[in-house]
């Protein structure tokens, strides 16, 4: 098991007048009061309802949900931009809630980089000074700031734009500056708050690929917020789906797509293309399903995706035989099973 970098245990956040918040929390926990009930009875808004998860080193953990589902609120607990009402947040084994203001600033400056939906670059500073700002806060000398910002800008392929002002750059470039700024302090953790939502689809796709490659290589632990399941599937090692402040399901993209926990998740998943997500072993049937000689049938490994199976199926009239790591036949994918698999697990 890899080292756990971010650990969140039963975090609650209820917004409202101080006197009411405690009672509202009690009511929600003991009586199972819903979001609407809390608003009506206590005038409080439930932001996060008992979220728990942990993220391992180098993992990209996507948090997906519609707007208002509390995903941005949840991720702001990690660097304590928002104080939790209850629960515990740990970064590298340290309790964030118990840190002094000075320690917290230090952790924010050294271990956490954050990227925002609306870039949030400082309009009066050059790209270089924006990227170097986390180091400036730490009191690093200018030579160091310039060197690091040049390095970070080269990571996002923006060398040569150091002396420009943010407004002179396009939206996609500005967001790359935002990513460079988050990487400048060489943090352990990246918090990405819908970083690509405001960009047009083509640029978004391009940045997603760049980002994925970058994070895989730099091995940054990433919490990635998005309202777009496609994006979550493309980027995430694991995905958490949130609804009304609570986490509905956590799993790998394949688990989410093939075994949605409830109707809410199923609704999200139904429009997702399964070709790259669903693997052979989740659609295959028993070996005795087909009769006759299968020695001429095409063979594929258990973790081949549907896309690959279609390629094989097109070239042969026989069903596809699925083999395990030792080359032993373990199952069959008939044409019917393949088509059902593409449809998304309808039986």
């Amino acid at each position: 098991m890899r080292e756990i970098v971010v650990n969140i245990e039963d975090v609650w956040k209820i917004f409202g007048p101080e006197t009411e918040v405690e009672r509202a929390l009690e009511a929600v926990k003991t009586q199972g009061l819903g979001k609407a009930g809390v608003l009506q009875e206590f005038g409080c808004v439930v932001g996060v309802a008992g979220a728990s998860f942990s993220v391992a080193r180098g993992e990209i953990f996507c948090i997906m949900g519609l707007s208002g589902s509390g995903k941005s609120t949840l991720v702001r607990h990690v660097n304590r931009l928002i104080e939790p009402t209850a629960g515990r947040i740990e970064i590298l084994g340290r309790d964030v809630g118990r840190m002094s203001a000075k320690d917290l600033r230090e952790v924010r400056a050294k271990q956490i980089g954050m990227v925002f939906q609306h870039m949030a670059l400082m309009p009066h500073r050059s790209v270089r000074d924006n990227v170097g700002y986390p180091l400036e806060i730490r009191g690093e000398p200018k030579s160091r700031r310039w060197a690091v910002s040049e390095h970070a800008l080269s990571l996002v392929e923006l060398r040569g734009f150091e002396d420009r002002l943010p407004k002179e750059l396009s939206g996609g470039m500005q967001q790359r500056v935002g990513i460079a700024r988050a990487l400048a302090s060489d943090p352990e953790i990246l918090l990405m708050d819908e970083p690509f939502s405001a960009l047009d689809p083509l640029i978004r796709r391009q940045l997603q690929n760049q980002f994925k490659a970058l994070v895989d290589r730099l091995q940054k632990t990433t919490l990635f917020i998005t309202h777009d399941l496609d994006e979550a599937i493309r980027l995430g090692n694991r995905i958490a789906i949130m609804k009304d402040g609570a986490i509905v399901q956590i799993g790998t993209p394949e688990e989410i797509v093939t075994r949605p926990a409830d109707d809410y998740v199923r609704e999200f998943v139904q429009d997702i293309s399964k070709l790259k997500l669903v693997k052979a072993h989740s659609v295959m049937g028993p070996l005795d399903e087909a009769e006759g000689d299968l020695s001429a049938a095409p063979r594929a490994a258990g973790d081949s995706d549907l896309d690959r199976l279609i390629d094989l199926s097109v070239g042969s009239a026989l069903p596809i035989v699925i083999t395990d790591a030792q080359g032993q036949d373990i199952g069959l994918v008939s044409k019917a099973r393949l088509l059902r698999g593409i449809q998304g697990g309808k039986d």
Partner: peptide, 8 residues
């Protein structure tokens, strides 16, 4: 918020 998030 961004400045605070970087420890200002």
């Amino acid at each position: 918020e961004a400045a605070s998030a970087f420890g200002a």
